[in-house]
Write a protein that binds this DNA or RNA. Structure first.
Lengths: 140, 140
DNA sequence: GTACGGCCTGTAGGGACTACAGGGTCAAGC
DNA sequence: GCTTGACCCTGTAGTCCCTACAGGCCGTAC
């Protein structure tokens, strides 16, 4: 860890918000690349690892599986894909992403209405619930 | 299942897109309420169950844990909460939801740029990646 | 009255972590 | 130089959230 832009797994964990065991697990299943090692056998990371890990963390929080994230990373890494495949994958992910945005907007609306109602010191009697539970066909 | 708005677990599964075993699991852990039973011991559901299950399914797809969803449902069910608690919970969830929307928008941008690049038959050389991996502090 | 699809209650397995156990490394302070 | 404590290592076992049987009951159609 001589340079300022190289760091240990503990620092990577701290900066990424992903805990140490999880980072090692990601390495084992191929979501994170195998890092360099120090003389003592410690893993050595740099900013690229940090960026990748940030992405994975956020992706997980947004409901993508590790498998999907592996696919996205592979796509983004730019190897072993034809242009047509990239296009198709990107389009498929786009549909999924837009659906998630729609759903979250709806939830945001419900929550903010609920919060507003409660500030005004009214007990929420929640016919709001209907909006939250609103039914619609499942988009595959 | 005499009335048209009462149905079996198989139908509920079909209409909600949540599979049968998962529904029974949700019942076991208290995310879904204990349903009525037919004379033969079959679970009997109605539209309220369907609505609730839709919500849970979408919530899961958006990265909420079952525990968070239980909390949201509890909140929405309107019992055992003071107005202040509802407000605080709603506000906290709102922040989370808005962060997710922001992240998804960013991802949407990257993906659509990638797709557009590929339609024009250019090999994606992806400095786009920088946008995707962009770093920022973890919001707690 | 039997065949077959749907339901029942288990229990066991997989994906994505999380938490030890048991041991080595290293920098600080004495 | 030696100890102490925080950090790292490689396992393995446990948790959460499902998913997939196994073995058996119910119910309708022929």
């Amino acid at each position: 860890m001589t340079q300022t832009d190289e760091f240990s797994i503990g620092i990577l964990s701290e900066r990424s918000g992903v805990n140490v065991e999880t980072i090692r697990y990601y390495e084992k299943i191929g979501v994170m690349p195998i890092p360099a090692r120090s003389a003592a056998g410690y893993r050595v990371y740099d900013l690229d690892h940090l960026r990748r890990l940030h992405f994975v963390r956020r992706g997980r929080e947004l409901g993508f599986s590790l498998d999907e994230l592996r696919g996205l990373l592979h796509l983004v890494d730019g190897h072993a894909f034809t242009c047509g495949e990239v296009h198709e994958l990107a389009i498929r992910h786009l549909a999924d992403i837009r659906r998630k945005i729609r759903d979250l907007r709806r939830l945001e609306k419900v929550m903010s209405e609920m919060a507003a109602q409660c500030t005004r010191n009214k007990v929420p009697d929640c016919p709001i619930v209907d909006a939250l539970f609103e039914m619609r066909p499942i988009a595959q």
